[in-house]
Simulated scan of single mutants.
Amino acid sequence: MRFLHETLPQRIRFASAEAAASLASEIQVLGSERVMVIASESGGRLAQRITADIPVALQHHEAVTHVPVAVAERARAAATTCRADVLVSIGGGSATGLAKAVALTTGLPIVAVPTTYAGSEVTDVWGMTEGTTKTTGRDPRVLPKAVVYDASLTQSLPIATSIASGLNAVAHCVDSLWAPRADPVNAALATEGIRALRVGLPQLISSPTAIEGRERTLFGAYLAAAAFASAGSGLHHKICHVLGGMFDLPHAQTHAAVLPHVLAFNAAHAPEAERRLAAAFDAPDAISGLRALHERLHAPTALRDYGMPESGIVPAARAVVAAALTLANPAPVSTDAISHLLRRAREGAEL
């Protein structure tokens, strides 16, 4: 056995119903005195509630999907004007993403308080969209210094959104097994993440407000993101970033619909990863395991339901191939192959 593994430096606080206290402790550790809180407009009330005990200089509630460049520029200007010394993001991937966009140019530290299973809070990956193009990159400045996990904050998340977000976490696990920096440590995190998600996500349907299922799912999402943060972005995420930028598709639902088709595309070319996934899904093979989970969760299956046009298949495939040129993907990547994959994902074809 021979590998090189990098663990990103970050502190994790995981405690249900303790978000406000955990956040106050983190702000004290950092010695911050002027906090800029970043959330969506809909998440503003929650943000105000759990930041009541910290020195808030500004509540900035403009986080939106895919982080448009104009939105990022306004947030950066606001951070300068209010003389923020720390950013606190509260919400899903949009809030975390906007905080990262600010940190990228200002160097301000981030404390993330996630309310979904997106996982962005554990990675050093940033993304912004201009027009129909989404640009992503990696930078240590955007990695949150600390993450406050509180499963009770996810209890108000609608079930459909919870399921899509949780399947996004499953996608992090799957991609981590053949991403550019895949290694045995990432594989261990990813497979344990799938086990937690496989058990936790169905509990959300049977008992939507029960904390046990929420905690298990949130823990699985953290393991998934930790694996993904180290392993890097594989073909699945390259596809989803292209689709999100080109067609403004919803992030989590896109991941849920695309994942089975990427797994089917790669599985035969990555037998060791396939065996690991099958064991994690507790299934005869990885594809049937993921399919069974999708069916149990009534997961999103067709990209056309979210606005992807048929005319966009080939242009998207070309963009994916261009984005994936440096990937050592298990299966050969070509415009024809990705067009076929996208066509099946758009139609929600059975595997």
Rank of each mutant, 00 (worst) to 15 (best):
T136G: 10
H66E: 12
V148D: 07
R304F: 05
L58M: 15
A182P: 06
H172W: 10
R141W: 07
V111T: 13
D305F: 04
A267T: 14
A179P: 11
Q155L: 13
A323L: 05
E215P: 01
A103F: 01
E347Q: 13
T132H: 14
P208M: 02
V148Y: 07
G127V: 11
L167A: 04
P309R: 08
F281Y: 14
P184C: 08
S120K: 09
G193V: 03
S94L: 02
H237F: 08
A286H: 05
G348N: 01
R276Q: 15
A337Q: 01
A302T: 08
R138L: 06
A171R: 00
L23P: 04
P208Y: 03
V185F: 10
P330V: 08
T115L: 07
H172G: 08
V320R: 05
G232K: 04
G43F: 04
R74P: 02
T80Q: 15
P180Y: 10
F247T: 02
T123C: 03
L218W: 08
A75F: 09
V142S: 01
V56D: 06
H236S: 11
L143W: 01
L87G: 10
G44T: 08
E310G: 04
A57Q: 00
D183C: 15
V113Q: 11
T301I: 12
G166W: 01
L297H: 10
L342D: 14
G91Y: 00
D85P: 01
A103I: 06
E295R: 15
M308V: 07
S152R: 02
P309D: 14
T326C: 02
L249V: 12
A264I: 02
A280H: 06
P114G: 12
G107R: 03
V148L: 13
V102R: 02
R34Q: 11
D183S: 11
R216N: 04
L153I: 00
E212Y: 00
F3P: 01
R346K: 06
T123E: 02
A179E: 00
L341P: 12
V262Y: 04
D285C: 11
H269L: 03
R346V: 00
S42D: 10
H255Q: 12
W178C: 12
P9N: 06
L243A: 13
E121G: 07
K238D: 11
T209I: 03
Y222V: 05
N186W: 02
A47S: 15
T96V: 00
P202L: 09
G289W: 10
S42N: 13
A187S: 14
A169W: 00
A279K: 12
P158D: 06
T335S: 08
K100W: 04
G92Y: 14
L143I: 09
A227Q: 02
V242R: 03
A328K: 15
P315Y: 13
D53P: 01
H5E: 02
P144Q: 04
D183G: 14
A227S: 15
L351M: 07
A226R: 14
H60A: 09
I287L: 11
L293R: 12
N168R: 10
V29G: 02
